[in-house]
Design a protein around this nucleic acid. Sequence first.
DNA 1: CTGTCGTGAGAAAAGGGTTTCTCACGGGAT
DNA 2: ATCCCGTGAGAAACCCTTTTCTCACGACAG
Lengths: 337, 337
Amino acid sequence: MSVLPTKRVRIYDVAQAAGVSVATASKALNDTGRMTEETRSRVKEAASSLGFRPNAMARGLIQRRSFTVGVLTNDTYGRFTLPLMAGVSEALVDQGVSVFLCAIEDDPALAKIHVDAMLDKQVDGIIASGKRIDRQLPVDLTNLSVPVVYAFTKGPDDAVSLVSDDAEGSREAVEWLKGLGRRRIVHVTGPKTFASVEERAGAYRASVGDGARVLYGTWSEQWGHEAVAQIWGEDGDKPDAIFCGNDQIARGVVDALRERGVSIPGDVSVVGFDNWEIVAAATRPPLTTIDMNLKELGREAGRLVLALAAGATVEPGIRKLPCQLVVRQSCGGMPRS
Amino acid sequence: MSVLPTKRVRIYDVAQAAGVSVATASKALNDTGRMTEETRSRVKEAASSLGFRPNAMARGLIQRRSFTVGVLTNDTYGRFTLPLMAGVSEALVDQGVSVFLCAIEDDPALAKIHVDAMLDKQVDGIIASGKRIDRQLPVDLTNLSVPVVYAFTKGPDDAVSLVSDDAEGSREAVEWLKGLGRRRIVHVTGPKTFASVEERAGAYRASVGDGARVLYGTWSEQWGHEAVAQIWGEDGDKPDAIFCGNDQIARGVVDALRERGVSIPGDVSVVGFDNWEIVAAATRPPLTTIDMNLKELGREAGRLVLALAAGATVEPGIRKLPCQLVVRQSCGGMPRS
DNA sequence: CTGTCGTGAGAAAAGGGTTTCTCACGGGAT
DNA sequence: ATCCCGTGAGAAACCCTTTTCTCACGACAG
């Protein structure tokens, strides 16, 4: 049976069907106002049997909100944004809130257009996100008429920010390696200019203590190869573990080690960072790595922005969310329960 | 100078400032109605000096549209959806149209919730997208009150669908290899159950003619390794080119060949499919591959859904958009101009 | 001079809900 | 019997624009 797209049923129709006024119908459906329980349920029944769904624009016009939040990102490739976005969406969907995704590509003009469009549409709030935790988006989001939460990107000092706890993740990786009996742990990571690189390296040094060694490079497999060539080209003891700044470097390291005949995890354990499924799972052997819990970060960002929109006051500042070690086979060791 | 979030300026304020009625102000700003050019420009000046931006909900309420389209996808990983989404967004942003992104994870209930939410919000149209070109989303989008365009996913027969032209892309890859003088071209691809696998394989066979050979497997690097092991384990002539069903397989093939000491592109040329930057660029050597132009596909989907929303009639059926060869170093040959 | 017509601009309705205000009614207290 | 008050429910205002309808006015033709 094909149902033709029929005219939307309005609250007027519901009221009529239930034999009450529009005002009463509205109050019945929203569980506000005063009326007998009998009236309320009669209205609700009428509504559901008619398939009534309130027009969000009409409702939003008067309530001055749209049940909509915007996610702004310059992470075109979506490596970080998508899990985050999935979390946001998940946290909001059961509140009836939908998510605008705006890719702004580091273009200030484009960013402004998107922000203006979102404000015109009366978004309840904005979540700013990016591909770097230590860079601001190319657009000023202060003094907007709606709350803003920064997730995985830098905001003004007095803003509400959510980031993954790089230091904690780093520590977790090193502790895991130490727990496996590894003693000569090297850290091969990205460019010094990234705040998260220094953050992770710092925690690594603190956790390893004497003998800590950090090699800075780029975020590429290529660099993983080069780092291995460099280390294995030297005299003296070789490391028995390499903690990498991201999964791409880790993959390069693993490939380079394998090509040298070094056994993983027999001779050397390797840990990555990011848990970028496609890289981590395809590496031989699959990478044990640190997951930044971006989805959870997204959920939290969604909850926060909605709370702010509802008028809650939230202590400004940076909230760090814990990472999580994902055990595969590049270290040995069993998955923790 | 910090600007405090001030009350939004309404068209009423503009009218007042310009010394006209609200009706005239509205018509002036929308370039409708009749008035002297002087009045019109006076209103426009007032509006811009006050920074007036119309409330999209009020406007949408009466115009019965929201300047919003929804993109529905079950491609959680975002490999296909993100470029597509970027294209959609790009095509719509200058029309003032924003994009809802809804990840539905193959969950019919979740899909329904999202679709309902979008309809409540009076989206102008919906773009359905997915991770497989030959599977429908787990939700019925027929007989909605808004137009639907299917992009990179299967829709009903009488729907407007947009897909990449797998056969054309396949042909392009083979012709490129033939143009480089390759004569023994093998096709290593994904599972037979995927329509695009058969589509590509068919075009490959037609283009290669005698000696065509297709190896079906999975979409993994692992399978690329296995396929090479299988082929090189046989007696007789080895291929001088391998056309792979996606970039992951191609990467596996390239790695396996390198490990066997086969020179790429000296002895064997390898072509991938998808142009998945992260895989294609990190392969050694970087992959020459087929790009499905998903961003352009997204742009087209955006344009189409908006045209439909504006009342245009579009011939239903499947539109195939051409792919594009991206030349890197796994084949030899120079980039075409 | 009067009737007609085109033009500029405003009044008011519309869009679909929510919220405030008002009111009628009936029961209990005085 | 009268007064007060709590209760259920409806009328109307409101949110902010767009759009239709109406009208006043001046020019022009008869």
